[in-house]
């Protein structure tokens, strides 16, 4: 493991304070993720997986601890800075796809490029490429509601990758899909990872976790075990 670190967290904590209760979602997480890795985060419901992923994705900020992204400490970065890092480096895939209902597939996929200020011609080229890679080019003018779940998730992955991010964060990407479409999505993520993109994925499914290099097990907001995926590593070593 001599690769450059993409993410490094120290004693990451997250507390949610509501009117009456204080929930500790993360209770001191130390995690390092290198460039090019494929990491799966597993654990029972409510153990803090999504919370961790959102912090790694700069959607949320920790209550305590530190967080370095590409060697830069961004624990206390402003919303503006975080938005900038987000649109330049990150892609998101959600369990519920989170496509915008009022926009067509093509417009949905083009959105990150619009926020990056990419020219129209360039946007069209890259969106077409992304759609073709995901096999949904023939659906470009459809609205999300008109697609099947698998197609929607492929559109979401296309959107997550269209800006060529260095890190893709996926929160239970197969949660709403049947097993055939689930395997399809996992194959796509693996393909992206093999092409050099770092992938961090939250999942319940042991079979999905099999695709990752490393599995992080979370329990009550803490990492309990970190396993290297022997089969994957073996394949890499070969």
């Amino acid at each position: 493991m001599n690769k450059e670190l993409l993410i490094e967290t120290k004693q990451l904590q997250k507390k949610y304070v509501t009117d009456t209760v204080e929930t500790t979602a993360l209770a001191g997480v130390d995690l390092q993720i290198a460039k090019g890795e494929f990491v799966a985060i597993m654990g029972p419901s409510g153990c803090g997986k999504s919370t961790l992923l959102n912090i790694l994705g700069l959607l949320d900020s920790p209550s305590a601890g530190s967080f370095k992204f590409l060697g830069q400490d961004i624990t206390h970065a402003s919303e503006r800075q975080r938005a900038k890092i987000r649109k330049q480096n990150l892609g998101f895939v959600f369990q519920s796809f989170n496509l915008i209902d009022e926009l067509t597939v093509e417009e949905n996929i083009g959105l990150p490029l619009a926020y990056l200020g990419v020219s129209k011609a360039e946007t069209e080229k890259r969106v077409t490429e992304a759609m073709e890679r995901m096999g949904i080019a023939h659906r470009r003018n459809h609205f999300p509601q008109q697609l099947s779940g698998g197609q929607q998730q492929r559109a979401a992955i296309a959107r997550a990758t269209v800006s060529s991010p260095s890190l893709i964060l996926a929160d239970e990407p197969t949660g709403n899909l049947d097993s055939v479409h689930g395997r399809e999505v996992m194959a796509l993520l693996t393909e992206l990872n093999e092409a050099g993109t770092t992938v961090v994925m939250v999942t319940h499914s042991p079979s999905d976790a099999e695709y990752a290099h490393r599995i992080v097990n979370l329990f009550d907001g803490q990492i309990v075990t970190e396993n290297l995926n022997v089969r994957k590593h073996a394949a890499e070593l070969l």
């Binding site: 994705g57 938005a83 649109k87 998101f92 989170n98 496509l99 209902d101 009022e102 990150p112 926020y115």
Partner: peptide, 16 residues
């Protein structure tokens, strides 16, 4: 709300 959330996740600024 959802749309706004997605747009922000994808990098949309407050001004946008």
């Amino acid at each position: 709300t959802k749309e706004i959330g997605i747009r922000k996740v994808l990098g949309g600024s407050v001004t946008d």
